[in-house]
Design a protein around this nucleic acid. Structure first.
Lengths: 122, 122
DNA sequence: TTCATATTACGATATATATCGAAATAAAGT
DNA sequence: ACTTTATTTCGATATATATCGTAATATGAA
């Protein structure tokens, strides 16, 4: 009897784990929150640096990691590099967590989720 | 103008980042999925080991990490150690992600989440 | 108490990560 | 072309992590 199966493939788990890892550091989680709060415009590197007070080179590494896991997109604007969250990837992550926790044997009640923030508009 | 504020304190971000990090590894994410699928009974270490094929000592370290971040609870049953997911912590994580992504400027549409699994029963 | 089983701790190693300052690159303006 | 500003790369170090095999511990049974 296989306990785990559902709609998440073996390869996906590794990918999702990498995404969790990318958010699994205080500076990077702050970056994600900041970019989400600035969505959809995003921010250029210098703005992130000013806001979070991270050394340029360190910030560059963190952004590279977030880009590598497709959590963040970047486009050039002259000399600036404008970063935005990748909503598709974030949705994949959220959907995974949601279905793992609220699907099947319902470890978590979905209603309690809504309660703490958004109102469900079904 | 502060871009990030909302209902998540500074200390919380570090804690949440640690939780993400705990799930940010393929073996540990598999463990979490397995325990969720076995919820609420949970599994003893040997069962997890058989299911995932992880060396005893390595598995022990991973479980210690998950316990340390309060993602997993443990209780003794004779010589067995029965592990279960901590739904409160998981809910905190899910709620955070949900409100960051779907709250405020709504980077992600909540309805798309539901679509892939649960039906909203408001 | 002795034996068997389940799990964790120990010791060790290899790899990965976070961080920094300084140098290098890239684009834009003068 | 030169200068300024923005960002990344380089080189280096310190810390953390993942993993293993084996030894230690804890419980239950004989």
């Amino acid at each position: 009897m296989k306990l785990v199966e559902a709609g998440t493939k073996t390869a996906d788990v590794a990918k999702l784990a990498d995404m969790f890892a990318a958010m699994g550091t205080e500076p990077r989680l702050r970056i994600m929150r900041l970019l989400l709060s600035a969505h959809p415009e995003g921010l250029v590197v210098g703005e992130i640096q000013d806001e979070l007070g991270i050394t340029g080179s360190t910030l560059s590494h963190h952004l590279e990691k977030l880009r590598h896991e497709d959590l963040v997109d970047v486009r050039r604007e002259g000399t600036f590099m404008r970063h935005t969250v990748n909503t598709d990837s974030l949705r994949a992550l959220l959907t995974f967590l949601y279905s793992e926790c609220c699907g099947r044997n319902k470890a978590i009640d979905p209603e309690l989720l809504m309660a703490t923030g958004q109102r469900c508009k079904c």
